[in-house]
Structure formats: structure tokens, C-alpha cells
Design a protein around this nucleic acid. Structure first.
Lengths: 215, 215
DNA sequence: CGATCGGTTGATATGAATCAACGTGCGTGG
DNA sequence: CCACGCACGTTGATTCATATCAACCGATCG
């Protein structure tokens, strides 16, 4: 959990707003601990996940710069998920009370509402994918979701930065790493997409969309 | 969609609040239509679902009396899901603008926030179940979630009202009706639970919890 | 009385998991 | 600079859970 001693930058910005840097692979937020803060990811990639009693892990979503850890954290002080850094990340925390007091500003309320709606839609489509889609469709859908969110400025010649390992994909879409490897091998053979050394290269976007579009 | 001609009760309560009755099996809310209202289920059961391009349907959750169709509808006027009545239902619609203006009352804001947090947690656990659990675990988890929400006053001798058909269970947890039938047969044989003619009878709660508890 | 719907059961097919071996790149320490 | 270990990915063989196909049954309803 966030301990005061770990917080940096609080002095410079006032006590309602502070920053922290977490190296790749480390847990950023532990589950089932109350916190007075609402967190935003400022740089790097992270993911939100839960650990089940059988030891398995479900990745609930991936966090990119600008994402709230969870929009519901605006009203909820104790979250059941954990957040883990995928790359080195920079996070910013704001006091929940401070966020609440600014909710009277219509622009702030609208922004939170929009964030909320986006998250809800994304959860809904993930449930549909996990419940109804094949392995290929699941992975294609995950890629498409990520592609839409990776900033244009980071993309050159359809090569998208994407620091996921097979294990992350497997835990996000409910497959094993072995099967993820086979499916990605198929994508590569068929000239659809190729994930290698932190780069996702899309070779046939329309085929990827055909596989991964839900409706 | 909701047409004004279908709205009943608006005269009695003022134009910011109206009721409607929908018979079992009918669609209550069509996907991808904007609406100026936020809806609450007042009586009966319904479900929220999406239809995929391959024709398959994912039930996202079941709605019981008191549930908002979706908490995010408070800020979002166009939803991608549909809502269908499972039994005859009574619904109430409130003008979104009216809800917004009441959000300044701390009690209202807290209620919406709590509703939001509950929905988010439920989505998260559904994603974990769909991604990581076996057929038995999925169905047990669904039952446990429902049991917690069915009002005590409706329960006699561990017999819970539960108007789901196998098809609804199948679409909610991502299985076929045939396999749902086999799993429920197993539950019956092993004296865990029995679903028949709209009643779910729990015979061994601790075993059901062992199967369906996530953590 | 037939038709339809929901549920059950058996036989078979198939997609993904599991088990196991191997390769490759990379950091670490000798 | 090399040897080693380790994490990650790939591939093949096999197993297993669930889907699919098909037949049948009982209840309900026009």
C-alpha cells in the first residue's frame, strides 16, 4: 500500500496531490486496503487484476497514461483489485475529498461521468468476449481495444508499442500462455499481426477487425 | 424504445417521473437509442444483455427490484445493451436532468456512488469468473450472487424464487443449455442445489459456497 | 389432439489445457 | 570473455472439458 514515506512530490504541489514512481513488475496498489486517494496513471503501462482462491489471476484491464485506476474509486475507498506496473510507471494521487468538492463543477462531473461510462462499456464488452468468443476472437479483440488507446504519436508504420508478455494476454482473456503462443503464431503465419519484443505490428487490420469486432 | 404513448403514470407524478409495465419476455429497452431517462426496476426480474455479430447473446447481469438498469446511465444517455423482462416487470423512469440536479444532495450522490461501486465490483467478479472458472464454479457463483440479492421475505426453507430458464443461465455464464442441464443435474444428484419451476432450493450451502466463492 | 417449448440423455467432435521437451536471449557471476 | 541459470517463447503429444448433434420426454396451450 501507499505509505506516506513513499510519497514524493507532495511538498511541491500541496497535500492534496502527489506523485510516485514504481518500477516495472511491482505492485502499485494492494487489494482490500482503504485509501484516501484517487489515482491516475501518468506514464507507462499497468494493469488491474484480481487473484482467485485457486491461484489463478484475472487481468481486468490495462491502464494507459491518463487512466484512473478505477473510476469507481471516486466514491469507493476500498478496492478489491490490485494494480501492477507493466513498465516503470508514474502515478499521481489526489485526495478523494478534494475530488468530491470539485464535483460541483459541471466540467469535472461530466469528465468523471464520461470516464465512468467508458469503463462500464469496456467491462460489458469484456464480459461478452470472455463468455462468447473463441481464443482467436478474444486476442483480436484485446489488440483492437489496445490499438484504439495507444497514442498516435507512438505509432510508426502500424507498429504499436505494447509491453505485454504472453502471460498477461493469457490472464486477460482467460487462456494459457501455450495457447496464446499458438494463436499468435497463427496470426503471424496468416499475416494478420505480430507481437514481438514489445512491439505489436498490425499487418492486416481488416482481418483483425473481422476477428475481433463484437458487433 | 420508450415512446411517450407507452408511458403511464406520468400525469399522476409530474413529468419527471413515470412508470411502465412490461410483460414477461418482452424487451424493455433497446440498444443504441438515446434516452432522457434513468430507469429503475420496481418489481419483477429483468436482464441486461448484448447481442454479438455471431448471433450469440451475453447476459451482463440480472436486474432485481430496486436496481438501476445501469448506474452509468446517470451520466450516459445512450447505452449499447438491451434490457429484457424475465417476468412481468414494473419500471420507473426519472429524467436524467432531474437526477443531476439532485446530485448536489450528499445523500443522493452517496447513493449513486455506492450503486456505481457495487456494479463495478460485480462486473469485475463476473470477468474473473468467465475468464478463470469451470462450468460448475460459474453456475455456483451465479447462484450465490443471486441468493445474496433475493429479499429474505421471499425465501422459505432455503427455497428462493428464481425465474431463470437454462437458456438464461447459459447466456450469463457462457455455456450451452445442454451443459447447464448436466451441471444442474450434478448439483441435484450431489444434494447441493436444485432449480425447478421457478424455485431454486439450496440443499448444501457450504458446498455451494466452496464451489462458487472466488476468494 | 397435435404442436411447441423446455429439459434430459447419449454419442461424438473439437478447442483449449496439460505435460513435456527444447531453443533462445539475457543478465550475472566466475 | 565465457559458463551458467533463468525467463520467455515454441512445438508436439495427449487429455479433458465443453460443444455439438440427435433423439426423446413431459408439460402446457391452442
Amino acid at each position: 500500500m501507499l505509505r506516506d514515506a513513499e510519497v514524493t512530490g507532495a511538498e511541491a504541489t500541496g497535500d492534496w496531490h502527489h506523485h510516485r514512481i514504481v518500477p516495472a513488475g511491482q505492485q502499485v496498489l494492494a487489494p482490500n486496503h482503504a485509501s484516501a486517494d484517487v489515482f491516475v496513471l501518468c506514464s507507462g503501462w499497468a494493469f488491474r487484476s484480481v487473484r482467485l482462491s485457486n491461484g489463478r489471476r484475472q487481468i481486468l484491464n490495462f491502464l494507459l497514461p491518463g487512466d484512473l485506476f478505477s473510476a469507481s474509486a471516486v466514491f469507493n475507498d476500498c478496492c478489491q483489485f490490485s494494480v501492477t506496473a507493466l513498465t516503470t510507471v508514474q502515478i499521481s494521487g489526489m485526495r478523494r475529498t478534494q475530488v468530491h468538492s470539485r464535483l460541483v463543477e459541471p466540467a469535472v462531473a461530466a469528465a468523471v461521468g464520461k470516464c465512468w461510462a467508458t469503463e462500464a462499456q469496456s467491462s460489458d464488452s469484456m464480459m461478452a468476449v470472455l463468455g462468447q468468443c473463441s481464443a482467436e476472437e478474444r486476442i483480436a479483440h484485446l489488440f483492437l481495444q489496445l490499438l484504439r488507446r495507444i497514442p498516435r504519436t507512438m505509432v510508426h508504420a502500424r507498429r504499436y508499442p505494447c509491453p505485454l508478455r504472453h502471460q498477461h494476454i493469457a490472464d486477460a482473456v482467460g487462456l494459457t500462455t501455450v495457447h496464446v503462443s499458438r494463436v499468435l503464431g497463427g496470426f503471424r503465419e496468416r499475416g494478420i499481426a505480430e507481437l514481438s519484443r514489445g512491439v505489436l505490428e498490425v499487418r492486416n487490420m481488416s482481418e483483425l477487425k473481422r476477428l475481433g469486432a463484437l458487433s
